[in-house]
Nucleic acid binder design. Structure first.
Lengths: 215, 215
DNA sequence: CAAAAACCAGACCACTTGGTCAAGAGTGGG
DNA sequence: CCCACTCTTGACCAAGTGGTCTGGTTTTTG
């Protein structure tokens, strides 16, 4: 029984694991893996350092567990779209999804960014493979749109890169954005930025911007 | 006299300083500040560790010196543009500039990104002020274009953020891009990506894409 | 109600790492 | 040639850090 115990959500163990992961997400996002002290995570989680190491074998183990959680965010609606769907709607929703993640999970986004900048040393080849095959599928759908004359874009890869870059930018570079705007992005600002981005990308692809009210 | 000595470019000291900075740029980009060992920098520069500390007071001093070098890249042609200039040309050139920096100085771009993600703890308020006032000027010019009906964009800020995001993405996320494309970006790929991006942004702003051959 | 498992936490340690020191080796101008 | 200055380098150290150990307390379970 004990092995399954921690899968339940209401045990004290599951609760602490959750607290630790949440604390670790903030600390790793702010200081990177090497720059984060286990003690800092413990402090933030309001637990003694020893407890952190009790629930997770090591600092690296904790980081990897966290990373796995974070990677599960990298799936969204666009996953199921097919060539028959309307590109404008699909892309608009995908962009809105990505922006919503940036807004609600900025630390997760930052950790992912840090990981990639450092050459993705900890991304499992499982994730990489999965990610690559997801990409192939999506590129394929986009290419069909292009071939059908629905999309004025030359290369599907660049389109996706541009969407990722712009949407993640709001999370990853929030310090710069806040500094330059003079105030942090509120949720209305995010709504503006999202609408702006949707229009830029869609118009840039020769599409008409669909109504806002469809998810 | 000794104080000016290191400003000369051909002394042994200037040479070593240069080697150390170059080595540090690579190491810091790959491992972040906390994750980089002074010894690693020394090894890459092919000098004993003590020498690194001889030329730069401390690891932090070295990092700050490097950062200052890097920040000097954040100026470009767009700086001198006025509301009388043609927005399509100015923006296209600005995007090309940014992409060129991503291609030729990816490590510098990564270090800047790491710095921002971590909340920009080491950016001098001098740089921040300078950056903010640059921003105000540029936003002003863009706003004039908008007011004159030359540019179909609602907010100048978001336009600039989007340009930065997309162009820096190619440097900062090169590991992901390489993984997904199956091969690293060559200079022809960069040319393609640049042209693609210029078209996306300009068309997205309701502009016509000018000829490639003007810098 | 035991016994076993899960949880808690202070004391402690091996090791890494930035940085210092001191002693010497080049080097250039007067 | 000598003297001041720059440069080089091995030996060394104090502080910080991830992680263990041990002994205990609480919770679960048969």
């Amino acid at each position: 029984m004990k092995q399954k115990e921690y899968l339940k959500d209401d045990t004290i163990g599951a609760l602490n694991r959750h607290k630790i992961l949440a604390a670790a997400e903030q600390e790793f996002a702010l200081n990177g893996f090497a720059g984060t002290r286990v003690q800092q995570i413990a402090d933030r989680a309001q637990l003694p350092k020893t407890n952190v190491l009790y629930y997770f074998k090591s600092k690296e183990g904790l980081y990897l567990a966290l990373l796995e959680d974070i990677l599960s965010l990298w799936n969204g609606q666009f996953d199921e779209a097919t060539a028959e769907d309307d590109p404008a709607t699909v892309l608009a929703n995908y962009i809105r999804d990505k922006m919503e993640i940036s807004r609600t999970r900025p630390d997760a986004s930052k950790i992912f960014a840090l990981e990639i900048i450092n050459g993705a040393p900890n991304l499992s080849s499982f994730f990489k493979d999965q990610h690559a095959s997801w990409m192939k599928d999506r590129v394929n759908v986009i290419q069909q749109w292009i071939d059908a004359g629905k999309l004025a874009v030359k290369d599907p890869y660049y389109l996706l890169f541009n969407i990722w870059a712009t949407s993640q930018h709001y999370a990853d570079f929030s310090a710069q954005i806040t500094g330059l705007r003079g105030k942090p992005m509120g949720s209305e600002d995010y709504a503006d930025a999202t609408q702006n981005l949707v229009e830029l990308i869609l118009v840039g692809c020769g599409l008409k911007v669909p109504d806002v009210n469809n998810s």
